[in-house]
């Protein structure tokens, strides 16, 4: 018995380390690449709408004031510090998401499923549904200045919904009975039937046109970023497996 343990210990821990190195390396490359592209898409399509909304939040512009307001104000250009921080944080968030997604990819691979750049796109879309679309279905991406209640309550609901949706998608993809698929449907519906914490009254100063455009753009860029993240994650995971360090 003692001999078994002595044999197992040196082989097991390098395997564990190798596995973690493979997950970490794939996640850093995939997350940074998808995060940077996603950040550029955000700066082109989402940030101008946010900056426009901030003019109403700070009351530089007033909706339904005495005079009609131009829908095309000067919102400024690229801000090195502010937009630089956005690029950095978007890449960080995507590295975090990539770690989670690739960890689950490795679990699926252990069960015999093939992970490549092509199948990775489906993983990416599933990640988007779990972390962006499902929470956003009841807590829509909102412009600054929108009415809201305690951020802590909404964060708890956000996390619960994302975890429930992620688990549901795993059950839909890999479940083998109607019990599992039924549980998945319940997990997808429950957070929205229970309801997200919502404001008692509306007080947002931003025109609804901007709020709607912001939510649409945020979700659209989110889908693009996640699809790329899944594709890159599948690619790097597959490549790191073919050429272990």
């Amino acid at each position: 018995m003692t001999r078994h343990m002595m044999c197992a210990t040196p082989t097991a821990f390098p395997a564990t380390k190798l596995m973690f190195t493979r997950i970490l390396t794939s996640a850093v490359f995939a997350g940074a690449a998808a995060g940077l592209i996603s950040a550029l898409l955000l700066l082109v399509f989402v940030q101008p709408v946010l900056l426009h909304a901030e003019l109403y939040e700070t009351q530089e512009l007033v909706h339904f004031g005495a005079e009609a307001v131009s829908a095309h104000p000067d919102i400024g250009g690229f801000d090195l510090q502010r937009d630089g921080q956005s690029i950095l944080f978007q890449a960080l968030i995507f590295v975090g998401y990539a770690l989670v997604m690739i960890a689950f990819m490795s679990l699926a691979e252990m069960q015999g499923h093939v992970i490549t750049a092509r199948t990775g796109v489906i993983w990416g879309v599933a990640g988007f549904v779990a972390f962006h679309l499902a929470p956003g279905f009841s807590l829509a991406p909102e412009v600054p200045g929108a009415a809201h209640i305690d951020v802590g309550e909404r964060q708890v609901w956000w996390w619960a919904t994302a975890v429930a949706a992620g688990l549901a998608l795993w059950l839909i993809a890999f479940g083998r009975s109607w019990v599992m698929w039924g549980a998945a449907i319940a997990l997808l519906l429950a957070p929205h039937l229970i309801g997200a914490p919502q404001a008692e009254s509306f007080a947002g100063p931003v025109p609804p046109e901007l709020g709607a455009l912001y939510a649409a753009r945020a979700l659209g860029v989110g889908l693009a970023g996640w699809a790329l993240l899944g594709c890159f994650a599948g690619f790097f995971w597959h490549r790191e497996g073919a050429n272990p360090a």
Binding site: T9, A15, T16, M19, G96, A103, F104
Partner: peptide, 21 residues
């Protein structure tokens, strides 16, 4: 030790990833 070989890095990666987010 044998069981932990596959699961430990996966669990750690998920915790690290969610922590970063």
């Amino acid at each position: 030790v044998q069981t932990g070989t596959g699961i430990l890095p996966v669990v750690f990666a998920i915790i690290l990833g969610l922590g970063i987010v």
